[in-house]
Structure formats: C-alpha cells, structure tokens
C-alpha cells in the first residue's frame, strides 16, 4: 500500500485526464465498471479515493467526510487540492464508507429545481465491484440499474455496501431532477457510477 501523502504516481495533467475519462464513461453508462489501477496490481485503503479527489477537487469546491477514519484524508485534501471542508448538507463532494451506515447521508445537498446540478457528488468507498450478479458466500449486494445510459438493465455486484446507504441514496434520488450522483470506488481500484437518473433495485 502506498503512503497517502506520496502522490508522485499521479500526474496532474495526464493521470487526472485518464481518471476523468473513465469517470465520464461510467457516469454515462451507469453500472459499467472501469479499472483505475495502473497495472501492477496496487490496492490501498485510500489510493483510489485520492485519485478521484485529485481529479475532481480544487479551491472552488467543498467536501465532507462521513464517519470515522477520514481524518488524514481531510488534511490531505486541504493540502493537495485546496478544497475546503464543509458540513455534509453544504459540501459539493461527500465521502462515505459503503459498509458503514451513515445516517447523515440523507442531509446531503440535492440541488433545487432551478439548479439541480448543485446536488452533491457522493464518493462511496467499497471493498470490491464485479460485473453482473456475482454473489459468492453471500458477500455483496446485486444492484440492478435502469434508465439513461443503460440498454434495458445492467447488473453489478458490490461488496462492502450497506443496504441502509442504498436506501438513503434511493430516497435522495426519488424526486428527479433533484438528487445526488454516486461514484462507487473499491479499494482495489474498480469504479462504477450511479447517476441520479438511474432507477435502482437490489437484492
């Protein structure tokens, strides 16, 4: 695992361009999975969350983290991105651990009808993401997405995502175009998106 503060592996021009294109592809095709990892099989608790922060955040943005364990990451973001910490209901980006039910999630900004784009982006850290319905030993939730970007229905399996959080996201997105857009990122570097336009069921 790489030390969080060493970001020499992340090129501000080319790495952020590559990560963004993967994000865009996944946001346009909800449930599609991209691999952020560079090839040599790295994984780390914060490695890929850091990659997303460096790609998306700067002085013009605010962020919040929900739950314990994010303290060092907060200092990291302030230092490297210039983004400012804010309360969950005000932040542009909200970071949450998928497996820890976070009741504060329900307060996250959904935008308003004039400016629905002011709804927050939720970055949810999970253990693993697999394409299709893949339920080994009962670990993981199978998500089924429908809507723009999905031909018919797309399935994916997410390990380390509490049902309470899913229910919360569903509730936040129940009044389209208001809502939040979710980026799932695993500690192994898999990436998938659930924009607010997606209909979602799970089992």
């Amino acid at each position: 695992m790489k030390e969080m503060w060493d970001i020499s592996w992340f090129d501000p021009v080319y790495s952020s361009q590559r990560v963004f294109r993967q994000l865009l592809d996944c946001m346009a095709r909800p449930g599609k999975i991209a691999e952020l990892r560079g090839g040599e099989g790295e994984s780390g608790d914060f490695l890929y969350v850091v990659a997303l922060a460096l790609t998306l955040m700067d002085e013009e943005t605010t962020f919040a983290t929900l739950g314990p364990g994010w303290e060092e990451f907060v200092s990291f973001c302030k230092f490297y991105t210039g983004s400012r910490p804010a309360a969950p209901e005000q932040a542009d980006f909200v970071f949450i651990d998928g497996d820890r039910p976070g009741p504060e999630l329900i307060q996250v900004r959904r935008g308003n009808l004039l400016f629905p784009d002011q709804g927050a982006t939720v970055i949810c850290r999970v253990n693993a993401i697999y394409p299709g319905a893949f339920q080994s030993a009962g670990e993981g939730i199978v998500l089924r997405l429908r809507g723009p970007g999905v031909p018919g229905e797309r399935e994916l399996t997410v390990a380390g995502l509490a049902r309470e959080n899913l229910a919360c996201l569903e509730k936040l997105n129940s009044e389209f175009p208001l809502g939040v857009d979710t980026i799932l990122v695993s500690v192994q570097g898999q990436l998938a998106c659930i924009p607010r336009s997606s209909g979602m069921t799970w089992c």
Binding site: M27, A28, D117, G149, P195
Partner: peptide, 23 residues
C-alpha cells in the same frame, strides 16, 4: 488544469441530468 477540472465536474453533472443545461 483548474479550468479543466471545473469543466469536467460540470460534464459529469450534465451526463447525470440528461438534457439539463449546466452553467
């Protein structure tokens, strides 16, 4: 890079709300 970041954030929102004009 800051300008690109802003535009990239807006693009993601635009994709998430199809047809809506993001300022």
């Amino acid at each position: 890079e800051q300008s690109k970041k802003e535009i990239r954030r807006r693009m993601l929102k635009a994709v998430a709300i199809p047809g809506y004009q993001v300022p």
